[in-house]
Design a protein around this nucleic acid. Structure first.
Lengths: 207, 207
DNA sequence: TCAATTCTTGCAGTTACTGCACTTTTGCGT
DNA sequence: ACGCAAAAGTGCAGTAACTGCAAGAATTGA
């Protein structure tokens, strides 16, 4: 029986294998010695790869630890988001969460990453930093939705509101993903967690 | 007429003067060339200080750009926060904002910082990273308040809720401070901005 | 004015990261 | 099966952020 996924060339397979090998090594070292006491050279020696190639793959020392950035959502999902009419923050979180699932990680790597994240919360800050790069793109999405939903809202107000929507969503995201990762890790349930979190936010901003 | 503030020793005055001189130089350079194209050596040459001392003062290259971390709130303010009964996120933001004002910045430096922040939003991410260091301390405060307000709330739920409160507050903070900095910069008004932002958050998490 | 303390600085070293040129590997047409 | 073009891996040299240490300078308090 042929695989459902398109057959990958030797090139891709090598790249995947290598990526996993390096991620595993990096995570194991970071778990043993702590992120700050691990050097790129150590990772490279443990995973038999040259430092130059390491940076080609991951860009930064922490790249292998925090995992790939969530992929950009495709047009269909975006359109769905623009036309949805739930809480805008909730809808945005669902959109981001789906992008996160587009890149299915290795089982071991996933578990190690979970352990490391709880051990060194500073890595969460790095996630946020990386997300920050996508701020503008995401803000544009939110503005599209606002324009669609409230055609009469003045430009500047929409811009401010978009910023706020994004900030709240990105601020709460680490908490939600931590909860979800610690408790189940099952894709289906992420929507439940998001929904519960939104309800909670509603409560804590109400006197 | 003697000054109201306690007289500073020569040591303190030198340190203050130096700090301002370096901050000014760093900001001017960053505004002219962009943060990434400025080196610590350039800043040191422009402000006539040794690189070693620069790091003693500011710790990181960006330290002189983003300004001092908000000082830890004193016991009185903390007690006030624990016993307040407004929206918990709003009360927390007010607490943080007051800590921010405890260190009064130089007028010029303030203006340059404002300009740089709008020019290079990546600096905001740095602020967040630095705030992340204080996450635990802040979370403890929030938990104190929750324990005071809801004595029956179970441990784990309180912990999750504290995380969420902090994340939302810290997420929204950059937006608010940007609005406030761009429009007035007057201390009195910051409460108004915070209040308005909270109202807005309430709206965007409601379907 | 002198001794104790604190601060600044130079130096040497480590580590993250980058551009460039060179070799190896892979994909593919014949 | 073979060889060529494209892509990927690697070594090297260099830059820049940051740190510990110890010596020298400034400040303080008696």
């Amino acid at each position: 029986m042929p695989t459902a996924t398109p057959v990958l060339g030797l090139r891709e397979r090598n790249r995947l294998r290598r990526t996993r090998r390096v991620e595993r090594a990096a995570l194991a070292l970071a778990l043993e010695y702590g992120v700050d006491d691990v050097t790129v050279d150590m990772i490279c020696e443990a995973s038999d790869i040259s430092p130059r190639t390491y940076f080609n793959y991951f860009g930064t020392k922490e790249g292998a630890l925090i995992g790939p950035a969530p992929s950009a959502p495709d047009e269909v999902l975006i359109e769905e988001f623009v036309q949805a009419r739930g809480s805008i923050v909730e809808d945005l979180m669902l959109l981001i969460a789906r992008g996160f699932f587009a890149t299915e990680p290795d089982r071991d790597v996933f578990a190690m990453r979970r352990e490391l994240y709880t051990k060194e919360p500073s890595l969460q800050a790095l996630q946020v930093t990386r997300m920050a790069d996508k701020r503008q793109a995401t803000a544009a999405l939110v503005r599209r939705r606002l324009a669609d939903q409230f055609p009469d809202m003045p430009e500047t107000e929409a811009s401010d509101e978009a910023q706020l929507v994004m900030s709240v969503a990105m601020g709460a995201f680490p908490v939600i993903s931590r909860l979800w990762i610690e408790q189940s890790g099952d894709e289906a349930e992420v929507e439940t967690y998001i929904h519960a979190a939104i309800a909670r936010i509603r409560r804590i901003v109400t006197p």
